[in-house]
Amino acid sequence: MNTVIKRMLAVLMSGCCTLAAYAVDTSITVNGKVIASACQTGVGAVYNIDLGQNHKESDLASAGSATGYVAQDVVLSNCPGGTNTIKAAFSGTADSLNPTMYANKNGTGYATGVAVQLQNAIASTDVGNLATMSVNKNVSNQAIFPLRARLYSKNGGAKTGAVEVSVIMNLTYN
């Protein structure tokens, strides 16, 4: 009888001591985004526009005087299939007298009284600090930003020295 009672107690004990396992539903969200690859430039990341080394003070002596424009296309190639429009946002140090133009470096050895005017060569509009310019990708998967630059003296009286301006083009692909 002891054996029967022990077995019954064992069955009863196992039934009353079972632990219930409860699960909570959990969801996992995975996010991501596929973007177009960047277009490529044939010259790397730096374009140099040489405005010339022989401009005379007398050529920039009067108010509103300027040198001739020097054209420089920024050519992006191998633009990916999903890209249709490329937008450039320009940034650099704005000239204090000509806010749509760029200030020359200042200090010993740099020309004074001049700014660098960078323009959209087709629209003849300045692309100074904070300006934007958009171009469409062509059938050859290129995007060409037609630019031109020159020296400009708003008040005249330019003084000799070097001209050096840095402009950043931040590109956005759509």
Rank of each mutant, 00 (worst) to 15 (best):
N174V: 00
T26R: 13
P146S: 02
S14I: 05
L171M: 08
T18H: 08
K137L: 00
P146H: 00
N174Q: 06
G64H: 05
Y47I: 09
A149M: 00
L60Y: 05
D73S: 13
V167D: 07
A20P: 08
A103P: 10
A38D: 12
N120F: 02
D50G: 14
N106L: 04
G64R: 04
A149I: 00
G52N: 04
N84D: 14
N120K: 05
N48H: 13
N136H: 03
V4A: 10
C39R: 06
M1S: 09
I5C: 01
K137D: 00
K56D: 15
G128E: 01
S58K: 08
T108I: 05
L97F: 06
K33V: 13
N155I: 00
V24A: 14
L9G: 05
V127R: 03
A121L: 04
A38T: 12
T160E: 04
M101Y: 15
R7C: 00
G128C: 03
L60I: 03
A45L: 12
V165Y: 03
S91F: 13
V127N: 02
L118A: 03
L147P: 04
V4K: 07
T83P: 09
N48R: 14
G92H: 09
N106V: 10
V135Y: 03
L118P: 06
V135E: 04
I168P: 01
A88D: 14
A121E: 08
L118N: 05
V4I: 10
D73K: 11
Q119C: 04
V4S: 07
L12V: 14
Y69D: 15
